[in-house]
C-alpha cells in the first residue's frame, strides 16, 4: 500500500492509540478473491473512510472485523481482541463495543422505532424499567433529531430517517468504534449532507473511532480524517482526502473526476 502521508494520524493528534489493526487480510468466496492483502489501521477518535467502487470488498472488510465473516488469512485486531480466534463469549464482548450501521439500516421491521431502540437495552443491558427505557430512547432520538418518529414503524420512515434511527440504535450501547456501511447510499444530496454531519457529531460527542465504507466522494471528503482507497480488493493508497485527490492515481481518477 502506498502511504501518501508520513503521519498516519493526519488530522488527529498523534498521541492517540490504535483501536483497529488489520494486516494482510485475505477473503475469498469460492474461487473469487474479494479481499487481498488489505492493511489498515484505525486510531481512537479518528474517522477513516474506506473508498472504493461497488464490489471492491468494502462491506466484506467491516463484516470480517466484527466476525460476521471469517477471514481466510491475515490478522484483525479490534480493541485488542484477535477477531479470528475469539470464543463466542468474547466475540459478544467485542461486538458490544463496536457499533455497526448497515447499508439498508437493518431496522427490525416487526417493531416500532421505540421497540427497535429498546431492544439492545433490554437484551444487552437488562434494562426493563419503563421510565429508564423512555428516557434513554428519547435522548437517543433527540440526538438524531427524530423524536417525532418514536411510535412509527420502519416502513413508514424515509431512507434518511431509517439511517438515522439505525445509527441511534447502534449508539444506544455507547460503542467505542462505529462502522458505517455506505451511510449515504440511496439518499438525496441534502439528506446525505445531514448524515455526514451526524457522523461528525457522533465522533465529537461520543469520541468514537469510525470506519466509513463509501463510494461517495463527497461523503469521504466531508467526514474523513484519513482515507484508504480499496482497489480490486486491495488497500492501495492511504492519506488524507486532499492527498489522495492530489495523487492523480489512475485507479482513483473516476472518483475525483465527478
Amino acid at each position: 500500500m502506498v502511504t501518501l502521508t508520513t503521519n498516519h494520524t493526519t488530522g488527529v493528534p498523534s498521541s492517540l492509540t490504535k483501536v483497529v489493526e488489520i494486516k494482510n487480510l485475505k477473503k475469498s468466496f469460492n474461487d473469487r478473491v474479494v479481499l487481498n492483502n488489505v492493511n489498515l489501521d484505525l486510531y481512537e477518535r479518528e474517522n477513516l473512510a474506506v473508498l472504493g467502487r461497488s464490489g471492491s470488498g468494502k462491506s466484506v472488510l467491516i463484516k470480517c472485523m466484527v466476525g460476521l465473516l471469517r477471514a481466510d488469512e491475515g490478522d484483525i485486531q479490534v480493541l485488542g481482541y484477535d477477531v479470528s480466534s475469539l470464543s463466542a463469549k468474547k466475540l459478544i464482548e467485542l461486538r458490544l463495543q463496536v457499533g455497526f450501521s448497515f447499508q439498508g439500516s437493518a431496522l427490525y421491521d416487526s417493531m416500532t422505532v421505540r421497540q427497535n431502540l429498546e431492544f439492545p437495552l433490554k437484551r444487552n443491558l437488562g434494562i426493563y424499567d419503563r421510565d429508564q427505557l423512555d428516557e434513554i430512547v428519547m435522548t437517543s432520538l433527540k440526538e438524531v433529531g427524530l423524536e417525532r418518529a418514536i411510535d412509527q414503524r420502519p416502513d413508514e420512515l424515509s431512507g434518511g430517517m431509517k439511517k438515522r434511527i439505525g445509527i441511534a440504535r447502534t449508539l444506544i450501547l455507547k460503542p467505542k468504534i462505529m462502522l458505517y456501511d455506505e451511510p449515504t447510499s440511496g439518499l438525496d444530496p441534502q439528506t446525505s449532507e445531514e448524515i455526514n454531519e451526524l457522523i461528525l457529531q457522533v465522533r465529537d460527542q461520543y469520541h468514537t473511532a469510525s470506519i466509513i465504507i463509501t463510494h461517495d466522494v463527497s461523503c469521504a471528503r466531508q467526514v474523513s480524517d484519513r482515507v484508504v482507497a480499496l482497489i480490486d480488493g486491495e488497500s492501495k493508497l492511504e492519506g488524507t482526502f486532499e492527498e489522495l485527490e492530489a495523487a492523480n492515481d489512475s485507479n482513483l481518477k473516476h472518483f475525483f473526476n465527478y
Binding site: L96, F100, G104, A106, N124, L173
Partner: peptide, 16 residues
C-alpha cells in the same frame, strides 16, 4: 426476510 435485509446480522453484531 430478516436474513436478506440484514436484520439477523444486525442482531448478531449488537451482541444479541
Amino acid at each position: 426476510s430478516m436474513k436478506v435485509t440484514e436484520q439477523i446480522d444486525a442482531m448478531e453484531v449488537s451482541g444479541t
